[in-house]
Structure formats: C-alpha cells, structure tokens
Nucleic acid binder design. Sequence first.
DNA 1: TTCATAGTTCGATAGTAATCGAAGGATGGA
DNA 2: TCCATCCTTCGATTACTATCGAACTATGAA
Lengths: 226, 226
Amino acid sequence: MKEGPDIARVAALLGDPARANMLTALLSGKALTASELAQEAGVTPQTASSHLSKLEAGQIVTPRRQGRHRYFTLSGPDIVEALEVLMGIASRVGHNRVRTGPKDPELRHARVCYDHLAGDMGVALFNGLSQRKLIEVDLNGVALTEAGMAFAAEFGIDLAALRKHRRPLCRECLDWSARQSHLAGSFGAALLDRFYDLGWARRLSESRVVRFSPKGEQAFRELVGG
Amino acid sequence: MKEGPDIARVAALLGDPARANMLTALLSGKALTASELAQEAGVTPQTASSHLSKLEAGQIVTPRRQGRHRYFTLSGPDIVEALEVLMGIASRVGHNRVRTGPKDPELRHARVCYDHLAGDMGVALFNGLSQRKLIEVDLNGVALTEAGMAFAAEFGIDLAALRKHRRPLCRECLDWSARQSHLAGSFGAALLDRFYDLGWARRLSESRVVRFSPKGEQAFRELVGG
DNA sequence: TTCATAGTTCGATAGTAATCGAAGGATGGA
DNA sequence: TCCATCCTTCGATTACTATCGAACTATGAA
C-alpha cells in the first residue's frame, strides 16, 4: 500500500485536541489571531505558536499579517468540508465533548458554518429557496435561477460585486447536525450578512450560535415559505 | 470551545500511518483479515491487532468473524467520505507518498472507490449516464430515471434485488483525483460488477487499479456516449 | 487427540510530540 | 527613544503511544 495521497499526515494534523479546537474555532469564519486561538484551545501562546506553524506548513490554515497581529483562516473549502465530515462521524459514534454545554441545542438550530447559515435553519433556507425555484441543483452543483437573481437584487444583495471574487456564488455544504445540505458559497454568505443587517439575527459572542429575534424568525419563515 | 462533536478523537484514529494504510486498503471495498491488514500496513500482527481494536472501539471499522478469521470493513459511507476528502486535501497540498509508484497514473484513470468505479472513467460514467438522462440529480441526491431503470434491466442489473438492502441505489461520491462526482451506491457497485462479468475490466491484484481491456474500454465509451 | 494457523494479551522499550518557562525579535504607539 | 504588546524560538520535561518479542487462546484440520 504505497499508492495515493498520504492521509495520515493530514489527519494527524487535525487529530490533536489543541489543534482541533483551533480549527473548530476557525469554522466560525472569522479570522482569528494567534492569541485568540491559544485561548480557544486552552494552551499558552508558545504552544499555540508551535501548533500554528505546523498547521501552516501543512497548508491547513493561511496566515495574514496585519500590524503586529497574525490572523489565521482555514486555507480552503476542502478543509471546512473535512472538518464537517469528521464532526458527522464523531457525533454518529457518540464522541461528543464531555462538556456538551447548554448551547448545544442552539447550535443545532442555527449556527454559522464558516460564513454562512447552518443547522436546522440553514437546511430550511436551502430547501425553501429551492422550493421557490430561486436556486436549482443540477450536475454542476447549485445555481441561482433567473427568479433567484431578481430575488437577490430585491433582497439587497449585489450579485455583481460577489461575482468579482473567484469564489462560487452557490455551493452545497453538508450539515453535520441535520445531515442535509445547506447553502454555502458567496451568495450563502451574503444572505447571512443581510440577516444580520436587517436585524433578523445576531451572532452570540464567543460562539458559533446564531440567534434570531422573534420578528426575524417570522420574517425568515415567510422568506422560506414555511 | 467546549461545544460540538470531538473531531480530534476521530482524526487521531485516522492520523497514524499504520492505521491510515489499513483504512486505505479497506477502501478497496473488500473485507480483509487482520493478517492481511497487518501486511498492508507493514507491521507485525500484534501491532495490527492493537490498531484494529482501537479502530473498532472508535467505530471506524466493523469486524465480522468467519471461522478463525476476522474480517474487517469500513463501518459506514461517512468513513469512506472522510477518507476521500482527506485524500483530496493531501493531494492538494502535495502530501503524496514518497513512493508514488508507476501505478499512480493508472489509479487516476480508473480505480475502485470502495466498491464502485472512480477516477477519470468513474467521472465519465457519471457524466455520461446523466447526459443520457439515465440518472438525474436533484435536491434529494441522485436517482435513476424511468429510462435508467429500463437501461438497468437491459444491462443485466436486478434492481429489485438491490432495493432489498437498506443502502441507497445511487449516491454521489467526490473523486479525490478528478475533483468531480462519480456514481456510488448499490447501483454504482452493480455497474462495476457487470463490467467485470462482461469482461470489460478486471481488478489488478493487490491494488485498487481497474484495468479495462481494449474492447471493454470501447464498449464503455459507447455506453457513456463518448 | 494432536498439530497448525489466526489472532490476542502482556510487558518492556523507544521514539515522538505536546507542553510550558524563559528569553528573544518585531511591530506600533507615546 | 522607550515601552508595551504580539508572537516566536529555545530548551527541558513529561506523557503518550506505536512497536515488537514472547506467551497465550481459539478455531479448524487431520
């Protein structure tokens, strides 16, 4: 068995608790500094620095200097996907954290997956948009329909600006808690941003939980046709 | 960061070279004995036994006794998926095995992914079937069309028998080398079986490579409309 | 029963990697 | 220039775990 890519190297990088904690924190989509990541992982800055240089060497995270800070982000969508799949396995085999806090149900309800909405509401959004024929799934993936583009403009999303980036507008992303697809891509991210701007929802600080206001939830339900 | 499933436990299980070799070998879809896996991983039977009990405890592999042998298989499709995603990352970041043998191009051309066809030809099969409208992709995943069912019967595949199992008929599976989808599920597996039976292709022993005969490749091209 | 094969358990060893304290740059502000 | 902050490097320690030899159990065959 000397064929194919070397899984072990990559998996070992994700397999250390401190590193896994850092990466999970980065799943929030925010760029975090080395010290923030150290705190997330519960280790000293020295230890975090050592871990981060390993993750960087393995191209799992990408650093960006800004002043005297170094901000880290996950290095690509495939990393996000790997983390999500591993979460799915871990939750299937019952390897949940010991301290599964009170936030757990909220996480399953609505959370950020990198920069878009995930959890039950993320899945509801995906299904609602496709039932309203605003997005459609075909072999090449997910795409906005004509009606979807009109909707985007009306909803206050500047598609032209989004298209300037290399990132795809729409992408499916598997949800580890709901086990169904939710909407990723720059359009998915833009939708979540609009939810924030409209005051429908807000991020709980220090957490991936997205909390909708009562009005926001109602508006959301109307949006997805529920 | 004390929320959510524990990635690190699972990733650490996949992150040891010996275990990763065993799991990669199991990606062939064949159930392998403890000694076979020991040889694949290049370790002694004692060491392999220790690894296998860990993998079993972590529900990564499932053992099945048969006489004085213990056969192991991967414990679920999510494990296959995780391994494939990790392979994708590893090949992206250039973490290929040191000894990337002469089989590597052949692996990319046509190989088994668990029990169905992967590699360039796997992707061609997927695209061909969908262009001929024998399968279609929608929100719930991939499904056989009416025409596809007729085709299956004509091609010598007993769909009724396949439906008896819990496993889905059709499923998308991401290809780590071609970076596109190929066809998994019991129908995908049945197709590959038919290719074997018809003499179109055969498995190279001790490898995941699938080699098509000239006639077989020609017939395959006609099948996928290439 | 006797023997061979498959697999596991035990114990010891060795290598690796995570961790932190302390000290050393580097950046930005006063 | 001086200081505070952010981060890294160095060195030493510790803990873990992969590994194998040897002995043991279990299954099947003769």
